[in-house]
């Protein structure tokens, strides 16, 4: 099966600083790919590139067979930014309905998306009056509503209680089973175990592109965090 996302030789500069140093990888369709790495490793920049809002120095990024950010992709790719990007002065339902209308969909699909993120009970509340975790879920609903084929999620589970986190990961896997390609970033390694595939990013370099099982084998540890550290040290020894 063709890759949903192909990246080759991707270089991105922000200001004078080089943020991504020639990344190359492919993301298979219908899977949850985790983008893991510490804060400042370039995760958000890479995700912005995938949805076509990041200026790129060089390299190629192809999503669903088209260059990232092509007009044809805008109804097929969903993006959830790290900070919830919804209208705080609208209710949950009004936010979902507005974004639904941008994809040519009705309030029925909007209400379904609100239900998917477990916010039906708060649908009539202003986003301003919600907790941080709830706001994040409103933001997610506004991306789910379009039924995107590729869903790019920047740290969607930050600040959520463990029960909700598990529920969201179940939702991500349900979407993947239905054919959606998900790219989910996180800076906590315990979420890596929930992904089908992993991209490990550090200082703008791709440290590893594998599966959780493979990473455990390569890093010689059942603990993914430990395995990650082993890989980092091995890389630094090679460099030294």
């Amino acid at each position: 099966m063709d890759a949903a996302i192909t990246v080759s030789g991707l270089v991105v500069d922000r200001g004078r600083r080089r943020v991504l140093h020639g990344l190359g990888f492919a993301v298979p369709p219908g899977q949850v790919t985790g983008l893991l790495g510490p804060s400042g490793s370039g995760k958000t920049t890479l995700m912005r590139t995938l949805v076509g809002v990041q200026q790129v120095r060089s390299g190629e990024v192809t999503v669903l067979g088209e260059p990232a950010g092509s007009p044809g992709l805008r109804a097929r790719v969903g993006y959830v930014t790290q900070a919830p990007s919804v209208y705080a002065d609208l209710t949950v339902r009004e936010n979902a309905r507005y974004f639904a209308s941008l994809y040519g969909l009705t309030s029925r699909e909007a209400d379904a998306a609100v239900a998917d993120v477990g916010l039906t009970g708060a649908a009539g509340q202003l986003v301003n009056d919600l907790s941080g975790g709830q706001r994040g879920r409103v933001s997610l609903a506004c991306a789910l509503v379009g039924g995107p084929e590729v869903l790019v999620l920047d740290e969607p589970t930050v600040g959520l209680d463990p029960v909700l986190r598990v529920e969201l990961w179940e939702l991500f896997h349900a979407l993947a089973r239905a054919g959606t390609t998900l790219v989910v970033s996180s800076h906590v390694m315990d979420e890596a175990a929930r992904c089908d595939r992993l991209l490990l990013l550090r200082d703008g370099d791709l440290l590893a592109h594998s599966t959780p099982a493979q990473l455990r084998a390569d890093g010689r540890s059942p603990d993914l965090e430990e395995a990650f550290l082993t890989l980092v040290r091995a890389r630094e020894e090679v460099a030294a």
């Binding site: 949805v51 809002v53 007009p71 805008r74 993006y79 990007s85 941008l102 994809y103």
Partner: peptide, 13 residues
């Protein structure tokens, strides 16, 4: 500043 503009620019709008 709220990020909604960037998000809107990734939609068909």
């Amino acid at each position: 500043t709220s990020g909604t503009l960037e998000r809107l620019l990734t939609t068909p709008l």
